[in-house]
Design a binder for these strands. Structure first.
Lengths: 192, 192
DNA sequence: AATCACTGTTGACGCATATCACCTTTGTAT
DNA sequence: ATACAAAGGTGATATGCGTCAACAGTGATT
């Protein structure tokens, strides 16, 4: 149940079996059906979750009513609306399952107890947040300086396993372009 | 010398005078002249710095030879190339002073000692990184779903004090648009 | 099997923004 | 004070991408 989680955190911090047991204790296994929402805009996000199986999109509905995908999360990714979770303010993001999924959920109070009880957990989430931040910084640079064509191809190369589970419409919502234009990019690629 | 730093970290963590003294000890005051580089692309970033006075731009030179500004840092901001600093790999970013400035610099080894000696420092940088990440996530959404016009006006509203110290060219490099277009946006605004 | 919703494709047209060229204004160094 | 570099502004033209509309393909639901 928590095997994948154990491997995941081992990337950032070393815990012995007893420490990991304490860490894993407050997590609850939850199954989520395709199309089900973990969080809807306006709700306060009280959880953080680790994806054991399945796929989610974390997105914002912009002024024009378009979904802007902040990120996709498949096996081994963490999901939350970090802004709403930390500040306990209404969420501007929604989180929806794109496949039948299984996640490990921890609530805010339990996570804060972990921070207090285990200094290594501070380090774990510091390092995880830093890595996430680095990835987002790179995406920011690419978004501002590359064409949609290049960004589409970069996405396929960087996340081939995720891309194959998504529709063009979902990928377009991540890249911030219309799905019709993604379709035209694909046509152009297939000709060359 | 470290008054501003003391106030800055007090936003995220509580340290008594003795603890703060230990925290501040490894920082070195450094003056930097306008146009001087703290870091150039290709170098490994071995420091993190707190801005006491002045202004910096952190930017990436893209394929077309254009500067893409990742962020500006004035008084009370921290600067580093977090990617290069953490992984000790060659930097893809450059950091240059836009004004004569004064910073407090800590090197990587000393920062790691702080992490080991003071659990509160783990928390400090975890929370700081989370806040930075939230801000970048919001910027990402805005970049993908708003026009240059809106983003320019948002920038002026959100950072009026920084904007007034920058040229249009620098603001354009942050927004990811040409400086000519920023000029046209300004004209349009002034007419209305 | 039939239906209906969702996804993908294509073309015509329009808008946001880039590019280029040139000029004016401002700042800076001697 | 002069000269030169950098910043700011403007118009003409080009391009990337959006919008809209229509249609075909693919899956889901009954």
């Amino acid at each position: 149940m928590t095997d994948l989680l154990k491997k995941n955190i081992a990337l950032n911090v070393t815990l012995n079996d007893q420490e990991f047991a304490r860490f894993a204790e407050p997590f609850r296994v939850t199954t989520v059906q395709k199309k089900e929402f973990l969080l809807q805009e306006g709700e306060v996000c009280g959880f953080e979750a680790f994806v054991n199986k399945g796929c989610f999109k974390v997105y914002h509905l912009n002024d024009k009513g378009f979904e802007q995908v902040v990120y996709f999360a498949t096996e081994n990714w963490w999901i939350t609306d970090i802004d709403s979770f930390i500040h306990q303010t209404p969420s501007q993001l929604s989180i929806q399952a794109l496949e039948d999924s299984e996640i490990l959920v921890i609530n805010k109070a339990d996570k804060e107890k972990l921070y207090e009880d285990m200094p290594k957990v501070e380090k774990l989430f510091r390092v995880m947040t830093q890595k996430t931040h680095i990835a987002l910084q790179r995406r920011m640079i690419d978004t501002l300086s590359k064409t949609a064509d290049q960004r589409y191809q970069d996405f396929l190369q960087r996340y081939p396993d995720i891309a194959s589970r998504l529709t063009n419409i979902q990928i377009a919502a991540y890249l911030g372009v219309s799905h019709e234009f993604v379709s035209k990019i694909r046509k152009k690629i297939s000709r060359s």
